[in-house]
Design a protein around this nucleic acid. Structure first.
Length: 821
DNA sequence: GACCTGCTGCGGTTTG
């Protein structure tokens, strides 16, 4: 193989020419790559990780000097198009300067969904030696008949932001692509770049499919400051709620004092509302502040991003759409409205600020309710102690495998035995059974047991020589259009009558609107004019009260790391210790909780019982995140009802849950702990939650990835209802005529593992089993219980009624408080 | 005096 034609000294000189000295970790990466080692580099954004990996790759491939004939030799994979474009620009820099012209003929190509057809064709004729691309575009390249020739000379693959891919199906798809590249070149070098993660060793092992490799620790993280805006002297702080607009004034002051600020919100609706509230508070900021989230049109977002880069914007209200991507030097401050719910997410956002050398990363939490102050202190504790969430790599996802089989068959074709060995050479499928493999193969050959009659699902067939191929060009084309594992909800485009695109909203939201109704979107008040062919045509509106679109986003339950840290802080408070400004500010509320009830800790489960006009309430506070609480609550309700018939309404939040029965309940069986035992957990969870319905919805995604549903031609997307309808059709057909279809199993399994978090639920039940029960009979709702009561009412009532209801509840509380005195 | 929860990411055709 190649010798180091460009010595490390040359890289040193290149750094010196820029007035820099390489960090030890950078030279470590260069040496490792030069010596033919694979590995994972753990470094934060802006720590020089790009240069380390790129120059290392150049040292590696430079043995033969300029490539004899144009062949692709270095692949750089990145999860975002915007990042791909910026990276390609940055990588071009050292080429001309490094190694005395050894790389004079080198270029860095860029290939994503944005790449124009002409450029693709040019690349096909004359491949650039290095290419920056996405996992999906790489899979597309694998689906070309000449894929082996085009990719056979690749020597180094760098996977940027590997932590973003590790835990999802995009990462699985990339694992399969890497296995292909390794088969083409057994000496392939693979390097991952990752941000801080709880399971870095595992991250490396997954990337390298269990092969030995380095884990290089990058430069230590910058100094990190996590603080919080505290509610002012005026009034105490809301006990419940998530919007946080009571902090508006304080936020305005912060923005006033700082030139460039990112204001992260947890939801798109929240971002819309905050943006509007800021403009209402400071009309003079029109044009100086902007909005950015995933449902806004790309053009709008590009404009905002460019504005940040230029330093032209005072503040941007955003969601995690700005978590990743371009580094914005002008960002001075990062505010986080509401809890970030996870340590890794908080660190990521803190890292968006302080890009100048020597400056700390700082994130300031804007609590939306009182208890989020504990989360602020807890998040700082966990971050300081380096307790960061892990990302769990998925295993055995047959939908992704099925897609990959068709991809390869549409490309060079495959022989089953050889491909099986290759597939098993991944972390995700290392445990794939023969039976699963045969099933997947059969599924692409004849559509499994139930679809045999439909030619569209006989996608792959062996040719005379036994090579499995996609013979029908129409099927191959449709398949290429559906490559990828991201399944989005179908949404309506939102456009002005002039045609200008604003973004997209969910079908279900528009379905509730009537012509002439107003809604707040893209930071503007809009009136719905008409809906036609998946487009909502709108015009500007003035004054009228507006709805805000709700998008069905993901849930973000409190992470285990956060919940541990929160419980630790509460335990301290229970011992009378209130360290730091947040805990001091919260002291009155926690002392009240302590007086009327108690404070929990890791070894004490707090349970509160209350009788009210509504009925019998039971409040339980494991502090284990809302998903787990939903499971716990359903489980408990079902097991209670087994003993004595009862119906319960349920409310959950990240701290605990409430069961409410209109009739009196004997909670005694709850006290011995048997109701919360982990025994029979799986069956009981399946019984208590509507898991069939959940699995059916999950199946839509699986069916789409496995290629059962055609997403439609671009520009003419099918409606969500249509997609869901055909997905449920498949669901029913399989259940009746092909119950052994493994995609059904996969849907059920994914619901349990990924949505209901059964693993975490079981661990939590085991912890609870070891806990002392602290049982409190309440006279009136405690500060911990109150938000759960509000939560439950919210689910049943419209906005207006909720405020009435809350007002009445408050009045009752105050009367009760008066009676106490 | 206490009210609005739910994120992100990619890819793609073609015939008249």
């Amino acid at each position: 193989m190649s010798k180091a034609a460009v010595p490390i000294a040359a890289a040193d000189r290149w750094f010196a020419a820029r007035g820099l000295k390489p960090f030890a970790f950078q030279r470590e990466v260069w040496r490792a790559m030069r010596d033919g080692e694979s590995g994972l580099l753990h470094a934060t954004t802006g720590a020089g990780k790009t240069w380390s990996a790129w120059i290392g790759a150049l040292l590696r491939v430079s043995g033969a000097g300029a490539p004899p004939r144009a062949r692709l030799r270095v692949l750089w994979i990145t999860p975002m198009r915007a990042l791909a474009a910026d990276t390609a620009l940055a990588l071009r820099e050292p080429l001309a300067e490094l190694g005395d012209g050894a790389f004079a003929q080198w270029t860095v190509g860029l290939r994503t969904g944005d790449t124009a057809t002409a450029e693709r064709q040019r690349q096909d004729r004359s491949p650039p030696p290095a290419l920056v691309t996405t996992p999906e575009s790489l899979s597309l390249m694998l689906s070309r008949p000449d894929a082996d020739a085009a990719l056979g000379a690749v020597e180094v693959v760098v996977v940027d932001e590997w932590h973003e891919l590790l835990g999802n199906k995009r990462g699985v798809q990339l694992q399969l692509a890497l296995a292909r590249l390794r088969r083409l070149n057994p000496r392939l070098l693979v390097w991952g770049l990752s941000a801080t993660l709880g399971n870095l060793d595992e991250a490396r092992d997954v990337l390298l499919a269990g092969r030995p490799g380095r884990l290089v620790q990058g430069r230590l993280a910058k100094r990190l400051v996590v603080d919080a805006l505290l509610p002012g002297r005026t009034g105490r702080f809301p006990w419940a709620g998530h919007l946080g607009l009571s902090m508006l004034e304080a936020v305005v002051r912060e923005l006033d004092a700082s030139p460039g600020t990112l204001v992260f919100c947890n939801t798109r609706a929240q971002a819309e509302l905050w943006y509007q509230a800021l403009l209402d508070a400071r009309p003079d900021w029109a044009g100086a502040i902007a909005l950015h989230h995933g449902s806004l049109d790309r053009e709008v977002r590009d404009w905002v991003e460019a504005g940040i880069k230029r330093g032209a914007l005072k503040a941007v209200v955003c969601t995690s759409s700005l978590d990743l991507g371009v580094d914005f030097a002008p960002v001075e401050r990062v505010l986080q409205v509401g809890s970030a719910k996870g340590v890794a997410r908080l660190l990521q956002r803190a890292g968006r600020s302080g890009h100048a050398p020597g400056r700390p990363s700082r994130v300031t939490l804007v609590p939306t309710n009182a208890l989020e102050l504990v989360e602020a202190a807890a998040a700082r504790d966990a971050a300081t102690a380096g307790r960061i969430e892990s990302r769990e790599p998925p295993e055995g996802a047959l939908d992704v495998l099925v897609q990959h089989l068709v991809t390869v068959a549409a490309g060079p074709g495959f022989r089953p035995d050889a491909l099986l060995a290759e597939v098993r050479d991944t972390h995700a499928y290392r445990g794939l059974t023969d039976q699963e493999w045969r099933w997947a193969l059969d599924f692409v050959l004849r559509g499994g047991a139930s679809l045999t009659a439909y030619p569209d699902y006989r996608r792959v067939a062996p040719d005379d020589e036994g090579v499995h191929r996609v013979a029908d060009p129409r099927i191959a084309r449709r398949h290429r259009m559906a490559i990828g594992t991201i399944v989005s909800d179908a949404a309506l485009q939102v456009r002005f009558m002039t045609g200008q695109r604003l973004g997209s909203v969910e079908e279900s939201f528009v379905g509730r609107l009537r012509r002439g109704d107003c809604f707040l979107f893209a930071g503007r008040l809009l009136e719905l004019v008409r809906v036609h062919e998946m487009t909502a045509w709108v015009r500007r509106a003035t004054g009228r009260r507006a709805a805000v679109p709700r998008w069905n986003g993901g849930r973000m339950p409190l992470s285990t790391e956060m919940s541990d840290a929160v419980l630790a802080r509460l335990a301290e408070a229970g011992r009378g210790r209130f360290e730091g400004p947040e805990m001091k500010a919260l002291r009155p509320l926690l002392e009240l909780q302590s007086t009327v009830s108690a404070l929990p800790d890791r070894h004490t489960l707090l349970v509160e019982a209350l009788r009210s006009r509504e009925g019998a309430h039971l409040f339980v506070f494991p502090f284990a995140g809302r998903q787990v609480h939903l499971g716990l609550a359903s489980l408990l309700a079902m097991r209670l009802a087994r003993r004595a018939p009862a119906t319960f309404s349920i409310a959950v939040n990240d701290y605990g849950f409430e069961l409410l029965s209109p009739a009196p309940v004997d909670w005694a069986p709850m006290r011995d702990g048997s109701l919360l035992s982990a025994e029979g957990l799986l069956d009981d969870v399946l019984d208590s939650l509507n898991s069939g319905e959940l699995a059916m919805r999950r199946f839509r995604e699986i069916a789409r990835i496995a290629g059962l549903l055609f997403p439609g031609y671009p520009g003419a997307p099918k409606g969500a209802r249509q997609l869901q309808a055909s997905a449920s059709l498949f669901w029913e057909v399989f259940r009746q005529h092909d119950p052994g279809n493994l995609l059904l199993d996969q849907a059920r399994r994914e619901v349990l593992e990924r949505e209901l978090e059964v693993g975490r639920l079981r661990r939590e039940l085991e912890r609870i089993g070891r806990c002392r029960l602290r049982w409190v009979e309440l006279q009136r709702p405690s500060p911990f219980a109150f938000p759960l009561m509000v939560e439950r009412m919210r689910e049943r009532l419209s906005t207006e009624k909720l405020s009435d209801r809350v007002a009445r509840l408050v009045a009752e509380l105050e009367r009760a408080a008066g009676a106490d005195r």
